[in-house]
Design a protein around this nucleic acid. Structure first.
Lengths: 223, 223
DNA sequence: CGGAGGTTTGATGGGACTCAATGCATGTGG
DNA sequence: CCACATGCATTGAGTCCCATCAAACCTCCG
């Protein structure tokens, strides 16, 4: 279930997210596809904001690097997700591919022009911004007040919701990435996963694949 | 300097924030003013989303309460700030006044209708959402990766920027509120303030008033 | 086969939390 | 006008969760 399904947008009547294509097509916003290999940077902090992107395949991480090497990932973007729509003239964070990834790029200026002419476009952008805001505020609660095990449980449920459904979740990101997303170290993530496995909440568990065995338990642990 | 000044919006050409009044006036969105005393609730989690609000005077906290009493404040809203614009049908967080507060309320449905008819309205809403998103992501980095002293330094600089300029900051919120905003306990906040005072970064310091003596030092500590 | 990158597991330490006492205003009623 | 209560804030002592440091263990490929 996507968050859009669970919490209908105030502008629900306007534009389902999967009609993005037809909408931008109407304004001749031709997206340019590019391929990035693992760990290739799509844009970095302080660069100018020229494009808005959509993940076609693969996965990217959106993060801020502090001067002493500390890293905080603010979001993972998966196929279908739109990212890189920011205020101002300079990027505030870096985005790079965590697996081989294809993204489409639309010129930012053209999208903005279209938005001033078409309320469906601006409503769609608003809706996306509010979805991102919702997610960011959930993450604030997680980072501010939840324990390591609660964070990992929440992460697993988020990925279960966002990754293609199957018996086994295939995570594109490393333990370090998960830690940098959850405000933990990779060791703590690893220990939390081991603990969940020992408690029978997880079935199979290796570096990239995790099977959720008891979602109900996970929901109670996430709180 | 307000964040709007520092980071021009992609829709900068459209609507400066202080023209909100004339814009909503054009659509006959008559705001209804109400007064709330200290700790009175403006809306609470799971209530229906009927209004969008603007702080006229005072200050409010926007927070999530976990089942066991843990609290995370996601934002403080000060005079001029607009809050309560959310997706879905039910509130996800609670907002209440931290000092005697006056807010104006606009019917959500009417604002949304106006937005579908007027790209200036929807651009303004988009701009506000993106500003909030920026702020939320800064907070994510703070909560995920910064130490107690760095969090308190960042908080002081944020309040210095947002509260009316004068020799002395008058904070409307308690130490507990600051802790709940920064993902710390009130004791840790108190100790951090004492430490900053000892280091000569702060001048006068009591429960509600703080004087910043060395902003440059604070900026280096915030990183 | 062997090295590299990532993950798991173990031992130890530290920064923030918890619990508790004290300090300090503001307000209230005798 | 002053005891007393009340609500915060400060300060101290002890604890714990997670970070750090370190070593072993994959597993994938050249």
């Amino acid at each position: 279930m996507k968050p859009t399904d669970r919490y209908p947008s105030p502008f629900e009547s306007c534009v389902p997210l999967d009609k993005f294509d037809s909408l931008i097509g109407r304004h001749e916003l031709l997206p340019k596809s590019s391929q990035y290999e693992r760990y290739a940077t799509i844009y970095c902090e302080d660069s100018s904001i020229d494009y808005v992107y959509q993940v076609v395949s693969g996965a990217v991480r959106d993060y801020k690097l502090l001067s002493d090497g500390r890293c905080q990932i603010t979001a993972f973007h998966l196929p279908g997700d739109i990212f890189g729509f920011e205020r101002g003239t300079r990027r505030r964070r870096t985005v790079d591919a965590i697996v081989p990834t294809i993204v489409r790029a639309i010129k930012r200026g053209e999208l903005e022009t279209a938005a001033t002419q078409d309320t469906q476009i601006s409503s769609l952008l608003l809706r996306m911004a509010i979805e991102d805001l919702d997610h960011a505020r959930e993450q604030i609660v997680l980072l501010g007040r939840k324990t390591a095990i609660e964070r990992v449980a929440a992460f697993l449920l988020e990925m279960d919701r966002r990754l293609p459904a199957s018996g086994m979740m295939m995570l594109p990101m490393s333990r370090r990435d998960i830690g940098d997303y959850l405000g933990l170290t990779l060791e703590t993530v690893s220990r939390a996963l081991a603990q969940l496995h020992d408690q029978g909440v997880l079935g199979a568990l290796d570096a990239k694949n995790i099977a959720l065995k008891n979602r109900a338990r996970l929901y109670t642990m996430e709180i």
